[in-house]
Write a protein that binds this DNA or RNA. Structure first.
Lengths: 214, 214
DNA sequence: TGTACATCAGTGAACGCGCGTTCACTGATGTAC
DNA sequence: TGTACATCAGTGAACGCGCGTTCACTGATGTAC
């Protein structure tokens, strides 16, 4: 990806990324065509190829941007300072619930990048890096609360917990009809059970029903 | 999909499905072209279109076949009779480990169908049905062992446990390099932690280290 | 401050590759009498 | 048991659509003197 030399071309580039993101969210990667991207970005095909060597580079760049945003969001959500005065179980629950919300909001993008990762090594690697980053953040959070759970290996527990949470939520995103009103397992309920599972795995005692109180 | 009238065309059809499956496992859905499928199947393009209305139908049929096989495999693995004389925790561990093995063996196919489900409602629905089927089987298994864990809602617990297991394993399949020798979290280790998580979530007491003894 | 030139940025019609699909045809299998 | 006919199964060259990519060109911005 050729970095722009002037402010206006930087703006053009961002418009293209935004257009691609919107199109993915609406109709998946398959619906992203260069001509439609540039049409939405108010640009032209030539301008596109002046910035990106090819179409793949656009999607790669977008993926990088999305991973960065996700990590930044997690950094805020998992900041230990934010939870100092909150009960451990409650904090875990809130984080899981927030994550579930984020996944639902960005469902289209998330699914598209899952599909890309399934087919393309580069996406899989960026994805793995994101998971590592999330695990590191969770590790920092858990280290602050070391005396509130019993799992002997905090690092391992962080990695596995991220897998449990992200895996379940993504699998949920895969199968759920977004418009199904009477879903057998709504997000809120899943988040609650998921929290219980994570807390139980960590070895943090929790009384039944406590989570639901807000 | 037009059902064949003679045995030989049934064979042709199966050859095509097998060819497509092999190609997916090797190079993902993108590598599947009609001409290559028929070449491998020792058939011809016309024969293809006499069976399938279009290329999508081939992949759909293959997905149905795979889901059926997966469910049949799970039916054997989760048959309560098979585990009557086995410790509960050990049985859960063995099942999770077996599932992890299956996922690794069918990694290519699994990833391809995840990608399809991300882009196509029909695949997502079949996938959701498979998960429901797995949950039902787990529910039957757990019902036989009702007195060995404390989770109050067996049905809910079954659904969530399937999500935890399949989600984590699939997410693992997404990010892992299959050829990386020094993976930070090898299958065996993940299966163990995953079992602990599931057991803890179910409320089945387990002493540390017990799982590893074989 | 103005002029000339270089580089950056953008335009969109035209090209062409790959792959799904069609179709006119040949061969194989089954059935009626 | 043999012959005629109908249907099923298979063949592969040719077509054409869609979309990524190229390229010859115009316009905008910056810089030197």
């Amino acid at each position: 990806v050729k970095p722009p030399q002037q402010a206006r071309s930087q703006k053009t580039l961002e418009n293209m990324l935004d257009a691609a993101e919107a199109m993915i969210a609406e109709g998946g990667v398959a619906s992203v065509t260069v001509s439609e991207v540039v049409r939405r970005a108010g640009s032209s095909v030539g301008a596109f190829y002046a910035r990106f060597p090819d179409k793949d580079a656009l999607l790669s760049t977008l993926h990088q941007r999305s991973c960065g945003e996700a990590l930044a969001t997690a950094e805020l959500a998992l900041d230990p300072a934010r939870w100092v005065s909150t009960d451990f179980a409650r904090a875990v629950f809130e984080v899981v619930r927030f994550t579930a919300l984020q996944c639902r909001e960005r469902r289209g993008l998330m699914l598209a990048f899952i599909a890309m990762a399934a087919n393309d090594r580069a996406y899989a690697e960026r994805r793995a890096q994101l998971d590592d980053g999330l695990a590191a953040l969770l590790h920092a959070f858990l280290s602050e609360r070391r005396d509130e759970f019993t799992h002997p290996d905090v690092r391992l527990a962080s990695t596995v917990a991220i897998r449990l949470i992200m895996g379940s939520l993504e699998l949920g995103g895969l199968s759920r009809q977004p418009d199904d009103p009477e879903n057998s397992l709504p997000d809120e309920r899943l988040a609650e059970e998921l929290s219980r599972a994570v807390l139980a795995y960590l070895g943090a005692p929790i009384s039944v029903g406590r989570l639901r109180r807000s």
